[in-house]
């Protein structure tokens, strides 16, 4: 294992141990999806066209996205609050890699919401859990969490460089749920919102995971969704890399790494 990979894995493990007892992120990964899943299934279960798989995938993705939104936008400021930011920056390790590893730990933790969503459907509402294309679903999940992790990486420096943007991002949680079709199909939205949906990784994550779980998307359709997950996630990661450099240079110029 190379030093960089070791560092990323260790960072993920440190983060995993921290988020596992972090009440705020537990809310994002467990309680919020629990309420969304139970409420939506309760409201929609009597409709003739109701598909529990749609709610399961939407609930899981909402939990993963919320956790990464909160963890990502607070990733650097959290290190500043606990006084480790200066230690990380003044170490020879890549700060981008360290935060990347930390958010990877959060991402793994956020998968709890997927288990929870299935648990709600199976145990509380008695729906059979059947994934139409398990292999494709696994690949879709992998692409989805990678793209959502990249989204978290994009939020991390953004929230530090422009504090107001950081606050604004937190307010985008539900609009992004809606624009990505996590809670209801985007066909219900006005047509002009479609281009916005198309640049959001959660939208392509939902397309791929819904399609693989229900089996109503053919392979070209899935490949298209995976390609756009790769494209949108990759673009956000590249921008994030550039923003991280800006954060470090600006912090060294302005002296803003420590709280005091």
């Amino acid at each position: 294992m190379t030093a960089a990979l070791r560092l990323a894995v260790q960072s993920a493990w440190v983060d995993f141990q921290e988020v596992a007892v972090n009440g705020f992120l537990l809310f994002g990964a467990v309680w919020q999806p629990f309420f969304i899943g139970v409420t939506t299934m309760y409201m929609l279960r009597h409709r003739a066209d109701f598909d529990p798989m749609y709610v399961i995938v939407g609930t899981a993705l909402s939990g993963i996205f919320s956790t990464l939104l909160f963890a990502g936008s607070g990733a650097i400021s959290h290190e500043r609050w606990i006084g480790t930011l200066e230690l990380l920056v003044a170490s020879p390790a890549s700060f981008f890699l360290v935060i990347g590893g930390r958010l990877a730990g959060t991402t793994v933790f956020s998968l709890l919401s997927l288990l929870l969503a299935y648990g709600i459907a199976a145990l509380l509402f008695g729906y059979p859990i059947a994934i139409a294309e398990p292999g494709w679903f696994a690949i879709s999940l992998l692409f989805a969490v990678a793209a959502l992790w990249a989204t978290g990486m994009f939020f991390a420096p953004l929230a530090i460089l422009w504090r107001a943007v950081g606050h604004f991002l937190l307010g985008l949680e539900y609009p992004i749920f809606a624009l990505s079709g996590l809670l209801f199909p985007i066909l219900l939205l006005p047509g002009w919102t479609a281009p916005i949906s198309n640049i959001l990784p959660p939208y392509w994550a939902a397309v791929a995971m819904h399609g693989a779980a229900r089996g109503d998307l053919d392979l070209p359709g899935l490949l298209r969704a995976w390609f756009f997950l790769f494209l949108t996630g990759g673009a956000l990661l590249l921008i994030a890399k550039w923003l991280f450099e800006r954060v470090l240079t600006r912090a060294r110029r302005a002296g803003t790494l420590a709280l005091s």
Binding site: V14, G83, A90
Partner: peptide, 14 residues
Amino acid sequence: GFVFGGERGLYYRL
């Protein structure tokens, strides 16, 4: 290597 005075700068849950 460097040490800044005070208690902060460690991962308390580890």
